[in-house]
Simulated assay, not measured.
Amino acid sequence: MRMLIGVMSVALLAGCVSPAMDDARAKPATRVLASAKPTPLVAECIKFSWQDENVFGVDASAYINTEKSGQLTVYTRNAESFADLLPQGTGTAVSYYAKQPDDSSAMRRLAMLATCL
């Protein structure tokens, strides 16, 4: 039962942030990066680093969404920051988006993301 509630919560959260992500994707990414590592490994690393309460306080949230195309998206609550990850050969192409790119939290998330590459 708890698992069902958790799955439903994530599904509802993903539905709420999708329009915000689509709006952000209509503009150029804040930063485009690449990694030689496999996409799932990079996604898990980003998710884990964005959940660090010592860095992000009580707003240390991160989730992973898998698209049918194979794209993975790691995002924060309300999609304040998110990263689209696409398999590229044996590595990963990463597009990072932030609602307020000059915000200190967005810059910290970008720095944490870079450590996963």
Results as ranks from 00 to 15, higher is better:
Leu33Pro: 03
Ala36Ile: 07
Pro28Thr: 10
Ser35Gly: 02
Glu44Trp: 01
Pro40Ile: 08
Ala62Pro: 02
Asp52Arg: 13
Cys45Thr: 04
Asp23Trp: 06
Ser18Thr: 14
Ser61Gly: 13
Lys27Pro: 06
Lys68Ile: 14
Gln71Asn: 13
Ala43Gln: 06
Val32Glu: 15
Lys27Leu: 10
Pro38Val: 07
Asp23Tyr: 02
Thr30Met: 06
Ile46Arg: 11
Ile46Thr: 11
Val55Glu: 11
Ala43Asp: 08
Asp22Ala: 14
Phe48Glu: 15
Pro28Glu: 13
Ser35Leu: 04
Ala20Leu: 13
Ala62Glu: 04
Ala26His: 07
Thr73Asn: 10
Ile46Asp: 09
Leu72Gly: 12
Pro38Arg: 13
Ser18Phe: 14
Asp23Ser: 09
Thr73Lys: 01
Glu53Ala: 03
Leu41Ile: 12
Ala29Gln: 06
Ala60Thr: 08
Gln71His: 09
Ala36Gln: 08
Thr30Pro: 02
Leu33Thr: 08
Ala43Phe: 00
Ser49Arg: 12
Pro28Leu: 07
Ala62Phe: 07
Leu72Cys: 10
Gly70Tyr: 07
Asn65Ala: 13
Thr39Arg: 09
Glu44Val: 00
Met21Gln: 14
Ala43Trp: 01
Asn54Ile: 07
Lys47Arg: 15
Phe56Glu: 05
Ser18Asp: 14
Ser61Lys: 00
Phe56Ser: 06
Leu72Lys: 05
Glu53Tyr: 04
Val55Ala: 07
Asp23Gly: 08
Ser49Phe: 02
Trp50Ala: 12
Asp23His: 08
Ile64Gln: 01
Asp59Val: 05
Pro19Ala: 09
Thr39His: 03
Glu53Gly: 03
Ser69Cys: 08
Lys47Val: 08
Ala60Gly: 01
Gln51Asn: 12
Leu41Ser: 10
Lys68Gln: 15
Pro40Gly: 11
Ala34Gln: 11
Ala26Asn: 12
Lys68Glu: 15
Pro38Lys: 11
Thr73Gly: 10
Ala20Val: 15
Val55Ser: 09
Pro28Trp: 04
Pro19Cys: 05
Ala29Val: 06
Leu41Thr: 12
Ile46Gln: 10
Phe56Ala: 06
Trp50Gln: 06
Gln71Thr: 15
Ser18Ile: 08
Glu67Cys: 05
Ser69Phe: 06
Cys45His: 00
Gln51Arg: 10
Ser35Asp: 02
Cys45Gln: 05
Cys45Trp: 03
Thr66Tyr: 01
Ser69Trp: 01
Arg25Cys: 00
